[in-house]
């Protein structure tokens, strides 16, 4: 027991000195658990996040828009993979993570349980959802676990394209016909509040945050990140002539920040519990794709085995 305490203290001092933790280093079991949960949840979010956007690939309004959307959705698959790989360095398996996602044991970002009925949503998602993700991910490039930090650096480089292409889509609509501008506004109305919820519960309701900050997994609290996002995004909406759907939103000169209205936490917890508009659809789609793709994985293995044997025969013949 005594040695256990000193190991944890040593670990804390190591992290306090801004050193990175690498896969084979000793770490508290709870540090490992927290990270496996957080990284796999992050990976699941990237993968499930492909669905609302893939919805528009076949219906993109131009070839240019379609190419961009395809590239973005492919990026999300890549981001999922970087993150699964980072989680695997902590000794969990890909199969286990997929199983936990499909059984509902593991969560993913609730934002992807909202539907995308309008093309404008492709713009709003890039602008707000990816914008909120960037806010969080830039912080995570300095997280204490090395493989997670490295994955984040790569992801952040690519995510900037996502946000900018999204803003461009919204801008085109906002500067178009009155009907198009209305599309942009309607989409903003639906996505604004769920985007703010992406930062998680407020600080006084986020019991794990404190420990995560102590271990330097996180470096900023949920409320801090949320406020930074709002302060950056409101002027971007003003530029487009769009209205943020929050009557309480107003600049606070003293704080140098925007005050904003109360978030509907009932909705937040309700969607997390599985009762959002698309929870069932998202998981069902994932399960179906996984099961229908099983034969491809098996065929690839069978082919690989055959090839290996063929190579062996060639070498023994020669």
């Amino acid at each position: 027991m005594g040695t256990n305490i000193s190991l944890e203290e040593k670990f804390q001092a190591y992290v306090d000195a801004e050193n990175k933790v690498e896969p084979k280093d000793w770490m508290p079991e709870k540090y490992r658990k927290t990270l496996v949960r957080q990284i796999s949840q992050h990976a699941h979010s990237e993968v499930i996040g492909m669905q609302p956007e893939a919805n528009w690939i076949t219906r993109a309004p131009s070839l240019r828009a379609k190419l961009i959307l395809l590239a973005k959705v492919q990026d999300e698959a890549g981001h999922g993979l970087y993150l699964y790989s980072a989680a695997e360095t902590m000794g969990t398996s890909r199969d286990q993570m997929i199983a936990d996602l499909q059984s509902g044991k593991a969560k993913y970002s609730s934002i992807f349980n909202y539907p995308t009925p309008s093309w404008a949503d492709m713009g709003t998602i890039g602008w707000l959802v990816d914008g909120a993700a960037i806010q969080n991910q830039v912080m995570l490039t300095r997280t204490s676990y090395g493989p997670y930090a490295r994955a984040m650096v790569k992801i952040c480089k690519e995510e900037s394209f996502h946000q900018r292409q999204g803003y461009e889509v919204v801008m085109k609509l906002a500067q178009g016909t009155p009907e198009q501008k209305e599309m942009a506004q309607e989409s903003l109305n639906r996505w604004w509040w769920p985007s703010l919820m992406m930062f998680g519960p407020s600080d006084d309701n986020s019991p794990n945050s404190e420990q995560s900050m102590r271990w330097k997994i996180k470096r900023k609290s949920n409320d801090t990140l949320r406020q930074e996002f709002i302060d950056k995004t409101v002027p971007q909406a003003h530029y487009l002539g769009l209205t943020i759907p929050d009557p309480d939103l107003k600049w606070n000169e003293e704080r140098g920040s925007y005050d904003f209205g109360e978030i509907n936490w009932d909705e937040f917890y309700n969607v997390i519990q599985g009762n959002g508009p698309c929870n069932k659809e998202r998981i069902t789609h994932h399960v179906n794709a996984h099961e229908e793709g099983a034969w491809v994985r098996e065929a690839a293995l069978a082919y690989a085995e055959k090839e290996a044997k063929r190579k062996e025969n060639r070498t023994s013949a020669a």
Partner: peptide, 23 residues
């Protein structure tokens, strides 16, 4: 740059190309 799963080395190269060299 990272890791990935594949059925064999040839496929690992192809997947690595898609995952790690898109830009």
């Amino acid at each position: 740059v990272g890791s990935l799963h594949a059925a064999d080395a040839d496929m690992a190269i192809k997947n690595a190309r898609d995952v790690y060299t898109r830009r």
